[in-house]
Design a protein around this nucleic acid. Structure first.
Lengths: 327, 327
DNA sequence: ACAAAAGTGTTAAACTTACACCCATGC
DNA sequence: GCATGGGTGTAAGTTTAACACTTTTGT
């Protein structure tokens, strides 16, 4: 078996079960065990795949020779070829197979459906709300995946239909907070906009995050309020995946904060990295402060950009010495 | 339908699917849809349930009349009555049923198996490694649950076997870090000890966290190195649940950091709360600093403890006004 | 009296934030 | 020249960490 070139969380070769003494009785039990005693769900993996895209079309490059090409955050969607939600756009994903961890399901399906290769993977959560899939009991493990610009070329659609990158934008619309005697609640409403200029499609969805304290415990739940064009509960999955990315990017001092580096090619300028953080965080950063924070994780290469209409920028790459410092 | 008194992430009444036009064709497709085309896994929920327990037995209370009773972190286990892993201790859990979200599975099973009632719930992750369950393809959604002292009385064992609280202790043994040209790796080894003095049982397990940067992306995987007495991969689940708790407790400035309050009864002294944080974080805190940090989330009640051999402490409770402040 | 916990104030260090400023390039 | 991004320094403000100190109780 040739191991796949996966960078996922689990590798096939690591599936070493602990040695354990199994009695004759237990062997007999296992031989007779019939899993169909209990009803079982279908299990799928859905992936929210992000990358940094160049926002500029072929036009508008004349006068702004100085300006760096505008970057935008992109998300990868596929157009469903089959029922249900036929012709709707959906997150890439598919059914899990036996004898694979779900990280492998995700990498396999992503390659099959879009031609995009392995990437940073983070688990977002299990989506198991009854009724989320009209086919019946289908639970889905959602992943956040990040790919870099060099890896995000999509191949011609195959079995699942066509795949395309959409510009991704989120806005926090309003927050309602209520506090009564023993109950506190905050409702945070987000609007997502997905646009693809070449396909000429605009998708938008409103999703609400409801944080509640009641019954002496805090809880969070989510609700899709409007959804035009996204299949299943993928609007919720997509938003939660993005918010997870944003939350981690916001903690640059910790290991998790450098996740944004996974959106970058091998060599990059500090400004392009800053732009990536700005896209994820949805706000402008102050350059000198950003550089001080990111410094432990990057290293000069000595190479420079050129021909950009302004002072050349040094190319940096990751500095692995800064990794895993304090365990 | 009477809604369960759940405090979980999802409530039954919120299962309102978005209105969607379904074509005749799609209806026909759905009518004919046969989920048994694909092989399906069994789906379970496993819960790592923590609470603060009094460490003192009935003895040793004479001379130390001044000392506050020692608190320890406890985790709830059940002794398996059936194969596989018969007579091993395991996390409470069980099979998901159709038409329930997994949060409901978790609350239902916890009540059935241990008599413990609803609690704070956080999703830890989906455990889907092939071979993790000798019965075949079984994937498990793990939850972190916190219950307070008033709610943690276990009932006599029923169907699943007996349930008991174990003192829980983790130590980080050693960390090996390697950096080569394009690969960085850190291996962090943890040892868990679970002890129950009345049952007279000591369980210990070594689990390793392996953080890797290779192939231009970071990933994390886990490995059980030693496991004496815990069923399935529950050693890994338990450790990861606890580390998630610890990580969140460490961010007291953020909303998530107040999760430790879910381990407290309704009214508590600031010192007992500090002790809870110390147990979770595994280190001593400096009282005045802790109080300044926790202040936004608690409110004086005006009531005091008494009869403790030292100055009475004011009882506090949550201050919901400090919640969800910045959305 | 005294041990133990309850509770407050004060300082130094660390980190974050904001801004001012100079540099190098292509047109 | 000049607009644009590349890049550095510095001061103010905030947060954190460490410690010193006083108060109150049951025996």
């Amino acid at each position: 078996m040739t191991p796949t070139k996966t960078t996922g969380q689990t590798e096939r070769r690591e599936y070493t079960a602990m040695a354990r003494v199994i009695s004759k009785e237990e062997k007999e039990f296992l031989r007779k065990y019939d899993p169909s005693k209990y009803e079982r769900p279908s299990l799928t993996a859905d992936m929210a795949v992000f990358a940094i895209l160049s926002g500029t079309g072929p036009e508008g490059e004349r006068k702004e020779y100085r300006k760096v090409p505008e970057q935008k955050l992109g998300v990868l969607l596929v157009k469903r070829k089959n029922f249900p939600y036929k012709d709707c756009w959906a997150l890439p994903g598919g059914f899990a197979e036996k004898d694979e961890a779900l990280t492998e399901t995700a990498l396999r399906e992503l390659k099959e459906e879009t031609g995009v290769d392995g990437a940073c993977m983070e688990s977002v959560g299990l989506f198991s709300r009854p009724g989320r899939d009209p086919r019946g009991w289908v639970v889905s493990q959602a992943f956040l995946m990040l790919v870099d610009a060099e890896n995000c070329a999509v191949e011609a659609g195959d079995d699942a239909g066509e795949a395309a990158w959409f510009f991704f934008d989120v806005q926090q619309k309003d927050t309602k907070k209520t506090v009564k005697k023993n109950v506190a609640e905050a409702r945070i409403r987000y609007r997502m906009s997905l646009t693809n200029t070449s396909v000429g499609i605009i998708i938008s969805a409103d999703v609400e995050e409801i944080r509640t304290y009641s019954n002496r415990h805090e809880s969070v739940r989510w609700q899709i309020l409007e959804d035009e064009g996204l299949a299943f509960d993928h609007a919720e999955i997509l938003l939660r995946a993005f918010l997870m990315l944003r939350r981690r990017a916001d903690h640059l001092r910790e290991d998790g904060g450098r996740i944004v580096l996974d959106l970058m090619p091998e060599k990059f300028t500090l400004y392009s990295l800053q732009e990536a953080y700005e896209l994820v965080l949805g706000k402008k950063l102050i350059t000198p402060n950003f550089r001080r924070k990111i410094a432990p994780y990057v290293r000069e290469t000595g190479e420079f950009t050129s021909g950009a209409g302004h002072r050349p920028a040094m190319l940096y790459k990751r500095d692995l010495d800064g990794y895993y410092s304090q365990g």
